[in-house]
Design a binder for these strands. Structure first.
Lengths: 204, 204
DNA sequence: TTGACAAACTGAACACCGTTCAGTAAATTT
DNA sequence: AAATTTACTGAACGGTGTTCAGTTTGTCAA
């Protein structure tokens, strides 16, 4: 039995080793350079070995996607300390934007790249997306219950809030704010999110 | 001189032929299948020929990007007929979303893919983005001047409005709304944009 | 202890990719 | 008609994801 346990442990360790190498490559050199051959070279195995541990490259990126969501959730979870739901909403949106701008590769992995979702189609749900969405949705619901946001289907407002910050983040990451002066864009991005939070409150 | 003019005309015609083939491939089979070899096969030339007309693949995608923006602009320009700026804003956002959802590949080309912007970095500006952004910004400015939207830097509100609909569109296209029931998502997307437009008005 | 079998791994093959370029054919110029 | 220029070819180069026949190592049963 010891042999079986040791082999299973070694298998999990090598799997995690592969993922750590993939993440390191991705963070250092971006998506293009995170190839199966480069990952294999980094862990000093042959490219074929990787297919003993993962179905395909999309499978690897789904795991990286999940790892990235854990980082994001930890980052955002500190907002749970904030009692005022409107203040928490504002803080959530500002921290979300800061995370996206500071970690464009991780953000890409979670919310823009197709590959993780291609692999996900073979699984049941998207727990990672759920957790982070619920953080937002619970805040919106509480603000409505306290009369701080005019009542409406919470999914409508939550989707709008998430889409606003996702839109700001992804247009920034994909360099689609070129029509504005470069040095003005970043503060504008944060201010836009802030201003809409303010107006959400005033619309009682 | 006739020879020179004919040769120049033939050059432009082949260039457009290449672009039409690329666009057809892209619309039919997506980005992955729109390779230089596949484009070459479609126009019945060698892959090397394409490099006599375009610097590289990113250059081709920049042209496709521009072609896509012309389609979008035509689509949105009909809103100029609407006199009420708030009604125009609402219409702009709904039509933008409908366009994105009906044409996910064209949308990808304009607002998500990196490649066109990589080629663009060698050029001066992004006229395409400007034209469409100005349509929105002019509408927001007029609504402010008429007291329909509370006064603020128009770029703040314009960025927020654009980011909201871009966020809705791109999260939908990249399948990041999996935490919601599939049949509920589409109406929710349109409703979220509509609801925020309404609330922008109420925040006088 | 040994042979049989299973597991783990290798690395080249396959079909694909973007880009370059030496060689060729056709068109143009002198 | 010969020289030169232009347009094009298609293989080479270095890369990609994935598969698999062959090899090595580890485990198990006799």
């Amino acid at each position: 039995m010891g042999i079986t346990e040791r082999k299973e442990r070694e298998k999990q360790e090598l799997k995690q080793h592969i993922l750590d190498a993939a993440m390191a490559l991705f963070m250092e050199q971006g998506y293009e350079k995170t190839s199966i051959r480069n990952i294999a070279e980094r862990i000093e195995y042959s490219p074929g070995t990787i297919y003993l541990y993962f179905k395909d490259k999309a499978d690897i990126f789904l795991e990286l996607h999940t790892m990235a969501f854990e980082v994001l959730f930890k980052h955002l979870a500190v907002t749970k300390e904030i009692k005022d739901p409107m203040e928490r909403l504002r803080s959530l949106s500002q921290m979300y934007l800061k995370f996206a701008i500071d970690n464009p590769d991780l953000y890409d992995l979670m919310f823009i790249l197709r590959e993780p979702m291609e692999a996900l189609d073979h699984h049941c749900g998207w727990e990672e997306g759920f957790k982070n969405y619920d953080l937002l949705r619970d805040t919106v619901l509480e603000a409505m219950e306290k009369g701080m946001i005019k009542k409406e289907d919470p999914d409508v407002i939550s989707l709008a809030a998430w889409s606003l910050v996702h839109g700001l983040a992804s247009l920034w990451i994909r360099k689609r704010f070129k029509m504005l002066p470069e040095e003005a864009v970043k503060p504008l991005v944060f201010k836009a999110a802030d201003e809409i939070c303010s107006r959400l409150k005033e619309g009682i």
